[in-house]
Amino acid sequence: MSNPAPGAVMRGAVDLSSLRNRPAAQSAAPAPSTGGEAPASRLVFDVTDADFGQVLELSRTVPVVVDLWAEWCGPCTQLSPVLEKVVTELGGRLVLAKVDVDANPQLAQSFRAQSIPLVVGLVAGQPVQLFTGAVPEAQVREVFTQLLQLAAQHGVTGSVPAGETPTDGESPAPALPPLHQAAFDAIEAGDYPVAAAAYEQALSENPRDEDAKAGLAQVHLLSRVQRLDLGEARAAAAGAPRDVAAQFDVADLDLAGGHVDDAFGRLLDLFAELPDDERAPVRERLLELFGVVGDADPRVIRARGRLASLLF
């Protein structure tokens, strides 16, 4: 992907377990429905420390975007309308939960909100880092598209009725190009070879299709980690520090688990240790993973800087 995005990342570093079983207060947050249907609710709502457990449960049905903001935060006031617009245009496939960090310090602490706006996804109760700071609308759209893809991999494909959410005369989000839609459908079905073929065809028709490049990198990562066991991979990598394939496996798993800096650091350390004539595959894998995380992500920028210093 070409901007801050979740890719395949399900973050485990944020601990929300203390918020799961708190008594629910009256609020605008949606309550999950019984009978397996998607909950009927507004698409954008405020949540608090007290009722956030409802949102965690909701995320088992439909992906949730959490916007941590404050009234005094200028970038927050720029970003929030963009988030609301894009969520609305997606017609219930995502919902937006807004958290005032000043009024809800426990949530701010749980999400480690060192700066705001901070935007985090929730998929099946697990946090997914999206981005920090105000980003352009086009980047928000791509991030949310990839969050939906990630959610599909974890069986979270429900939606909520759009209800009477105002459209303000806005046009609906444009349909995906046919090959991109075919790839997205294949990802939802877990058919990674078909998804990869669709993105590859899109790139053959338009080599400058950045969305297809990003999608293909993500599909490759999803396909690789599907076959891996974390314990076995870590043991193999520890026993063979210069085994490129073993280090690739752990880096893939780290990235898919949300440990982005760990993944990049592992591959950069390996790159530094290898002789020049063995470095090319490591550089190629790094560039691919940079594409999964997003070129504008600060972690990618830092890793690119270190890679450049190692090269020159």
Rank of each mutant, 00 (worst) to 15 (best):
Asn3Ile: 12
Asn3Ser: 15
Asn3Ala: 15
Ala5Thr: 13
Arg11Lys: 06
Ala13Tyr: 09
Gln26Asn: 12
Ala28His: 11
Ala28Asp: 14
Ala31Thr: 15
Gly35Gln: 11
Glu37Gln: 12
Glu37Thr: 11
Pro39Gly: 04
Pro39Asn: 05
Pro39Lys: 01
Ala40Arg: 15
Ser41Glu: 09
Leu43Asp: 00
Phe45Tyr: 14
Val47Arg: 02
Gln54Ser: 15
Leu56Ser: 05
Glu57Lys: 14
Leu58Gly: 01
Ser59Phe: 03
Asp67His: 05
Leu68Pro: 08
Trp69Ile: 05
Ala70Tyr: 10
Trp72Tyr: 05
Cys73Trp: 05
Pro75Gly: 09
Cys76Arg: 07
Thr77Pro: 00
Ser80Val: 02
Pro81Cys: 02
Lys85Leu: 08
Leu94Phe: 06
Leu96Pro: 01
Lys98Glu: 08
Val99Gln: 03
Val99Trp: 04
Asp100Ala: 06
Asp100Thr: 06
Val101Phe: 08
Val101Ala: 04
Asp102Thr: 11
Ala103Gln: 14
Ala103Phe: 07
Gln109Arg: 06
Arg112Met: 13
Ala113Gly: 10
Gln114Phe: 09
Val119Gln: 02
Val120Met: 09
Val123Thr: 04
Val123His: 04
Ala124Thr: 04
Ala124Trp: 03
Gln126Thr: 14
Gln126Pro: 03
Gln126Met: 08
Pro127Ala: 07
Ala138Lys: 10
Glu142Val: 07
Phe144Glu: 00
Gln146Trp: 00
Leu147Thr: 03
Leu147Glu: 02
Leu150Val: 10
Leu150His: 09
Gln153Pro: 07
Val156Phe: 06
Val156Arg: 00
Thr157Gly: 02
Pro161Ile: 10
Pro161His: 09
Ala162Arg: 12
Ser171Arg: 15
Pro172Cys: 12
Gln181Asn: 08
Ala182His: 08
Ala186Leu: 04
Ala186Asp: 02
Ala189Gly: 07
Tyr192Trp: 00
Pro193Gln: 00
Ala195Met: 00
Ala195Leu: 02
Ala196Met: 04
Glu200Asp: 11
Gln201Thr: 13
Arg208Gly: 06
Ala212Gly: 11
Ala214Arg: 05
Leu216Val: 02
His220Lys: 12
Leu221Ile: 07
Ser223Met: 07
Leu230Met: 05
Glu232Gln: 14
Ala233Thr: 10
Arg234Gln: 13
Arg234Gly: 00
Ala237Ile: 05
Ala238Phe: 05
Pro241Trp: 05
Pro241Thr: 07
Arg242Thr: 15
Gln247Ser: 01
Gly258Leu: 14
Phe264Asp: 04
Leu267Ile: 10
Leu274Ser: 10
Asp277Val: 09
Glu278His: 11
Glu284His: 10
Val292Ala: 01
Pro298Ile: 12
Val300Arg: 04
Ile301His: 08
Arg302Cys: 07
Arg304Gly: 07
Gly305Asn: 13
Arg306Glu: 14
Leu307Met: 13
Ala308Phe: 13
